[in-house]
């Protein structure tokens, strides 16, 4: 991994965007997440890595309260977004999800046109006035998702007709168009081929200039390539959290080292 020059990555911004303290998640009787505390910085890509079933996706879904939609799921602890507790009774989870967007593992474009897919968020949140402004929002979201050139001539074609990689970028554009502050990505490239994966990774690096990005990934190379901070999860515990360069070169915990060198997971 020498060519990645991990040591040179310096995290300039240290403003905390999301702060999780002693988070516990239960699915019925199953204690899925144990005592996880993470501070996610703004304008940074944070990667969650770990073997399958270690709870990294579950924890990600706590950050925008998507776990609320799962029956029998209970979250304890304190998670704040800009200092405000997101599990507070006064917080509307629907409004929260507009601020903390999410991109899923499998591309899930709506059965609508490409344009309507991107316009969906702005429309339901009333972010724009008039058609012209909407066109602008759609165009800029598609441009930032590096999809504009490929679809600008067929915005009315169904989003489901795109290739897998294009669909995933459409889903990213859809999430960006809602103007979130944080973007959560749950293994966004796991269903894609290497070229599409490279495009998505490049995109993630660009998105960092505007949002905090949290990405769950199975691929350690991907975490090393795109993230500045890395958190290693194992069996529902947060084992180690630190700068990506440090995690991959001088892990402090023996379990992290075992995982990174391929002995567990």
């Amino acid at each position: 991994m020498n060519d990645m020059r991990l040591e040179e990555r310096i995290v300039q911004n240290d403003k905390i965007k999301i702060d999780a303290q002693d988070v516990q998640v239960f699915y019925g009787d199953n204690h899925a997440i144990k005592d996880v505390s993470v501070a996610i910085e703004d304008k940074t890509v944070t990667a969650f890595i770990g073997p399958s079933g270690c709870g990294k996706s579950t924890f990600l879904r706590c950050l925008n309260r998507m776990n609320d939609t799962v029956a029998g799921c209970r979250v304890e602890g304190r998670i704040t977004l800009d200092g405000e507790d997101i599990y507070d009774k006064r917080v509307d989870p629907v409004q929260l999800r507009a601020r903390v967007g999410m991109v899923f593992q499998k591309p899930n474009p709506f059965p609508k046109s490409i344009y309507d897919n991107v316009a969906y968020g702005p429309k339901i949140h009333g972010l724009v006035r008039g058609k012209a402004e909407m066109d602008e929002v759609v165009e800029s979201a598609l441009k930032r998702a590096a999809l504009w050139k490929e679809v600008k001539d067929r915005l009315q074609a169904p989003g489901t007709g795109l290739s897998g990689g294009q669909q995933q970028r459409l889903c990213i554009a859809r999430a960006i168009a809602t103007a979130p502050e944080v973007l959560l990505m749950d293994e966004p490239a796991s269903a894609l081929d290497p070229i599409a994966t490279a495009q998505i990774e490049e995109l993630i690096d660009e998105l960092r200039t505007r949002f905090a990005v949290v990405i769950v990934t199975h691929s350690m190379q991907q975490a090393a390539r795109v993230s500045q901070k890395t958190a290693f999860f194992h069996l529902g515990n947060l084992v180690e959290y630190g700068e990506t360069g440090q995690i991959f070169t001088t892990p402090r915990d023996p379990r992290t080292e075992s995982y990174i060198t391929g002995r567990i997971g």
Partner: peptide, 8 residues
């Protein structure tokens, strides 16, 4: 999930 994740 996609729609709920966008805050609908």
């Amino acid at each position: 999930d996609g729609s709920l994740g966008l805050g609908a």
